[in-house]
Amino acid sequence: MALATRGTDHRPSMTRTLWGSTIGKKTVMAVSGLIMLGYLVAHMLGNLKIFFGPPEFNGYAHWLRTLGEPVLHYEWALWIVRTVLVVAVVLHAVCAYQLSRRDIAARPSKYVHKRPRAAYATRTMRWGGIILALFIVWHILDLTTGTAHPGGFQPGHPYQNVVDTFSTWYGNAIYITAMLALGLHVQHGFWSAAQTLGAGSATRERALKTTATALAVALTAGFIAVPVAVMTGVVS
C-alpha cells in the first residue's frame, strides 16, 4: 500500500498556498506596493530636475535610456524597470480586488450597528486606486507615446512636452487630482504594508504613521510642484 502511494504528493505548493491565503495576498500587496513606492520617490526626484532647465531635464531623460550601457543595450534598463512596475501594478490590483471580494463575501448582510467611520484615506483606497489606474493610462499616452499629447509630441524633448501638458487646464486638473489621490493612497498603504510585514508593532506605531504621512506629503508636494511651476511661469 505504501508503494502504491509513494511519489504522490497532493499537498499544495508554497506558491499556491501563499497566493490563496488572505495573508499571502496582503503580503503580495505590501511588497508590490513598496516596489512602486520606491519608483515613485525616484520618479519625483527626477521630475524636479525640470527646475534646472531644459539641458538638465533632457539630459536626465537621455541618461535613463542609456542606463547600464555598455552591458545593457539602449533602453534595456528602462524596459526592465517598466516590466517590473507593470508586474507590481497588476499583482497589487488583482490582490486588492480579490481581498475586497473576500471581505464582501465574509459579511454578505449589512451590519446591524454602524461601524466606526474609518480614516478618510482608508475609505477612499478603492476609488483612489481606480483614479490612479486611469491616470497611469493617460500619463503614458501623454508623455510616453505622445498619443494624447496636446500641441504635438516632440520625441527627444521631454522638457517641452511637460511644459505643453501643464499649459492646459485639463492637464493640470488630471495631474493634480491624481497626485492628491496618490498622497492618500501612500499614507494608508505604507502603514498597511508595515503592519502586514510585521513592522507595525505598538512601539513603532507613531513613528511609522509619521513616516507614512511625511512620505505622502513629500510625494504629493514634489509631484504637484511641476504643474504649479508651469502654471505660474517659473518653468516655461
Rank of each mutant, 00 (worst) to 15 (best):
V90Y: 05
Y111E: 04
R101C: 09
A202H: 13
P108I: 00
P70K: 02
S13H: 00
V162K: 04
Q154W: 13
V163C: 11
W19V: 06
G189Y: 10
T8L: 12
L182Y: 00
M14A: 15
F223W: 05
V162P: 01
G200F: 13
L197C: 03
P150H: 09
T147W: 06
M29D: 10
S13E: 05
A121D: 15
V28N: 13
S109K: 13
I35P: 06
F166E: 07
E205L: 01
R6Q: 09
T177Y: 08
Q154Y: 14
G146K: 04
G222R: 02
V89D: 06
K114E: 13
V234G: 06
G20I: 01
G171S: 05
L197T: 03
Q160A: 15
V162S: 02
R16E: 03
V112R: 12
T17A: 11
H43V: 05
P155R: 09
L18F: 09
S201H: 15
A77W: 00
T203K: 06
A148H: 00
P55Q: 06
V28D: 14
T211S: 13
V186H: 08
W169Q: 14
G146Y: 05
T196S: 07
L72K: 03
P70C: 10
T66R: 01
L184F: 12
Q187L: 12
T203C: 06
I130W: 14
N161E: 08
A30N: 04
M14K: 10
A148T: 11
Y39D: 14
V90D: 00
S201D: 14
G171T: 05
A202K: 13
G198C: 05
P55W: 01
G128C: 10
G183S: 09
G68K: 07
Q98T: 03
G38P: 10
T27E: 06
T196H: 12
I130M: 06
N161R: 03
A61G: 02
K25R: 15
S109P: 01
F51Y: 12
A181P: 09
G7K: 08
L34P: 01
R123E: 15
T145M: 04
A77T: 07
D164A: 15
G68L: 05
P155G: 09
Y111M: 13
A30F: 02
A61Y: 00
I23Y: 10
V89I: 11
W76L: 00
W169P: 14
H157G: 03
R102A: 14
I23N: 11
P55L: 02
A194R: 14
H92I: 00
K26N: 13
I176T: 11
